[in-house]
Design a protein around this nucleic acid. Sequence first.
DNA 1: GCCCTGCGAATAAATATTCATACAGTGAAA
DNA 2: TTTCACTGTATGAATATTTATTCGCAGGGC
Lengths: 211, 211
Amino acid sequence: MSGDTKVLSRRQRERLRHKQEILNAALRLFSTKGFHNVSMQEIASGAEFAIGTLYKFFPSKEALFDELVKASGQRIAVDMTAVLDQPGTEAGRLRNYFRSLAGQLEQHSPFIRLYISEMGMRGGKLAKEHDQPKVKALLSSKIRSLLEAGIRKGLFRAVDVDVAVVAITSTVEALAFEMAGDFDRGKAASVFESVEHFFLDGLLRLEAPPQ
Amino acid sequence: MSGDTKVLSRRQRERLRHKQEILNAALRLFSTKGFHNVSMQEIASGAEFAIGTLYKFFPSKEALFDELVKASGQRIAVDMTAVLDQPGTEAGRLRNYFRSLAGQLEQHSPFIRLYISEMGMRGGKLAKEHDQPKVKALLSSKIRSLLEAGIRKGLFRAVDVDVAVVAITSTVEALAFEMAGDFDRGKAASVFESVEHFFLDGLLRLEAPPQ
DNA sequence: GCCCTGCGAATAAATATTCATACAGTGAAA
DNA sequence: TTTCACTGTATGAATATTTATTCGCAGGGC
């Protein structure tokens, strides 16, 4: 043992692996049945541990859920930021965003479903009492910036930016949720391409330079 | 007592009134806190009855919820049908729809919030196990018909109609939910006017006849 | 007097959480 | 190399908690 805090003992690594196994099982179950309809016994069985073991890692069911949401939310935020922060024109960057959606959905399917159903803007107790991951706020604010800049530069027609942001994000959410269940990459790509056309063709000013 | 089934005795009328009082209390509570976070004791207190009385009217909590959702959903479906079925051009009828939204929201505020949060397309157990009111399907299909006809007649640019329907309905839902909490009629009207412009201005073909 | 209606304490049910017990791994001593 | 006391980890029956539901009793109406 080198004393370096980055190097974990086998036992430490095993503990982390067990914890992740529990989180993975929880994600599968929560994303299919929702927080309220999954018992701790089910999660324990899904992870092939005893129910008491779950409480060695998480003080409560809600703590488990919180940790799941935070970790996964952060992962998606990083991915989406990478997409939206790529250089390009406003229209091009929006186009990139739409084109990344099928891949993001494939990669994060269970979490997206969970997030939208339990932690979306419409959640009940869960949304209110838990620190929301910053995914939605981050996405909305980046899309808003793009739209504002595009309007300012004369690329996009003048629209109510708040409404436009809600329109884009809520449409994407609705479709993502629908397709996250039985995921088909080809269908998702096709649907999001249509979304891209629907929004961009309606936004672009006809006299704007071709993209 | 005339024997006519339409004429109710005082006691029968009182029973119906009591039942409605319970349903009203339930709607207020469910729409604020969600199905899972409201106990039968809370509903009983909210209606100023004892808890056992609730079970004289409803066999279970879920049956109470079902009845609430069905009754309110039907009321909204009737209202929205009246709006969408008014004669006019496709653009005019869509315009009417958007313009009716603030009023609908004012009238049905608690139920809309409940419906979207618990029975929307993203619900968990609740959406799956309960007969969904036909509100959403009805709305979607009417809006789809309008869009298809508008495209066929050259009024609207050619768009993916499925995506357009989802975009319109999910945007409206998102905004309705947001505003249903602290309802401000003026703000709602203004927001839905922006929505109208966002979608219609993006849909209308510039060479189409002015509306 | 009988029936109806409402009441709320008691019971039932479901599931979150606890904790005594058992098992596995470790490392020092023989 | 083997043994064994100690530590760490997992188990699942038991307990705790919350809330849905029941039903005996009381009061009111006819």
